[in-house]
Design a protein around this nucleic acid. Structure first.
Lengths: 200, 200
DNA sequence: GTCTATAGCTGGATAGAC
DNA sequence: GTCTATCCAGCTATAGAC
C-alpha cells in the first residue's frame, strides 16, 4: 500500500501503446471477473502477458493505473449517454442505459475500490457531477415537452429515482435478492410508456 | 489472505466476554472510520487494547470475526425495524430508518467487504431477504389501510423505491454529489404526508 | 486468557541488465 | 521497452511461555 503522501517520481508514458492498452484491458477484465481485490500488479501483468516491472514503466503506481482505467471508462459512458439522450425516445433510452448491469458493474467496482484509494474518490465525484449535468439538461427539455409539471416532478428527481431504484435492484441481485424486482421494473416502465409511448 | 478452502481448526469461544466485545467494537469503529481495508488483525487488536494473537483465540479467522460483527449489526437493525413498523406512522418511521446515514453506512461497508470475503456475501443475502419480508408484511397491511391500489403501487415496489432512492443519495453524498437531493427528499416526503399526514 | 515471537506469504515498487 | 532479481512492508495465522 502506498503511503498517503506518496508522489510519483518516475516519468510516466501517457501515450497509447499496445502494451499500455493490454494492461488496462487486463485490469478491466480482472475487475469485472474477480473484483478489485484481485487486481494486483503481479496478477494483472500476468494476465496482460507481461510482468509487473513493465507496469511501473507505464504507470507511476497502481493508483495511477486505476485512475487511467476509470477515465477510459467514463469517456465511453459519457459518449453512450450523449447518444442515448439524442434518441427519439430519450426516457426509454436513458432507462435502458441505467438499468443495464454491464454498464453499471464497473462503476460499482470503482466505488468499492474508492474506499481505500482516495485518488479514485475524486475522479468518481467529478465524473458523476458531469454525468448528472448532461442528463439533467436533456431531461429538463424532454419532460417540459411532455407537459410534466417540474414543481411536482422535478427532472432531477426523476433521474435520481430511476438511477436509485435501478442501482438498488442490481446490487440486490448480486446478493441473490430478487423479490419485487419484476413488479418494480414494470412500474417504472408503465410510467415511461405513459409519457413516451411503447418502447420502439 | 486465507486460502479458498480454509477450514477453522481451532475451537472458537462464542460466549460474551469483555475482550470479545471490545474486539467487535473496535472492528466496527475502524470499519466506519477508515473503511474495511483498515480492519486488519493487527490494527484492530491494537485499537481494542490487545494483540492479534488474542483475536485468534476468540475468532477462528478474520472471516469469522466479520461474520460475527455483521450478525450483531443485523440483529440490532432488525429490532429497530420491528419497532419502527409498530409505530402509528409506519411509513414515516420506515423512511426515517431507511434515509439515515449512520444506519446504512455499516451495511454499505459490508457490501464492499463482501467483494473479497465470500462468507459475508451469503450473510448479506440472507439478512436482506429476512429484512425485506418483515418490511413487506407490515407495509402490505398499512398501504391497504390507506386505500392504495396494490396493482398500481405494489407494496414491495414502494419499499424498493424508498430504499433505492435513499441509498443512491447517501452514496452520492459520499462522493460530494448533492444536486437534486433536497428536491427529491421533499418529493418522497410529500407522498408520505399525503397518505399518513404530517410527521409527528 | 493473555502475551511475545515468528513463520510464511503476497504485494508495491525499484535496480539494473539487455 | 522489456526483462530478471530483489528489497521491504504488512498481513494472516500459529507456537508456545506464562
Amino acid at each position: 500500500m502506498p503511503s498517503a503522501g506518496a508522489v510519483a517520481r518516475r516519468r510516466v508514458h501517457d501515450g497509447d501503446s499496445a502494451t499500455r492498452t493490454a494492461l488496462l484491458d487486463a485490469a478491466e477484465a480482472l475487475l469485472l471477473e474477480e473484483g478489485y481485490a484481485a487486481v494486483t500488479s503481479r496478477r494483472l501483468a500476468a494476465k496482460a502477458g507481461t510482468n509487473s516491472a513493465l507496469l511501473y514503466y507505464y504507470f507511476a503506481n497502481m493508483d495511477d493505473l486505476f485512475v487511467a482505467l476509470f477515465r477510459r471508462g467514463s469517456e465511453r459512458s459519457f459518449a453512450r449517454l450523449e447518444q442515448a439522450l439524442d434518441s427519439p425516445q430519450p426516457l426509454w433510452a436513458m432507462w435502458g442505459l441505467i438499468h443495464d448491469y454491464s454498464s453499471t458493474a464497473l462503476t460499482m467496482e470503482f466505488m468499492a475500490l474508492s474506499n481505500h484509494r482516495k485518488a479514485i474518490r475524486a475522479e468518481i465525484g467529478a465524473a458523476s457531477k458531469r454525468f448528472r449535468q448532461l442528463q439533467l439538461k436533456a431531461l429538463t427539455r424532454v419532460l417540459e415537452g411532455y407537459g410534466v409539471d417540474p414543481l411536482e416532478w422535478p427532472p432531477v428527481s426523476i433521474i435520481i429515482l430511476m438511477s436509485g431504484v435501478s442501482r438498488f435492484m442490481l446490487i440486490e441481485e448480486e446478493f441473490g435478492v430478487r423479490a419485487g424486482h419484476p413488479e418494480t421494473v414494470a412500474l417504472v416502465e408503465r410510467h415511461i410508456e405513459a409519457l413516451e409511448g411503447p418502447r420502439c
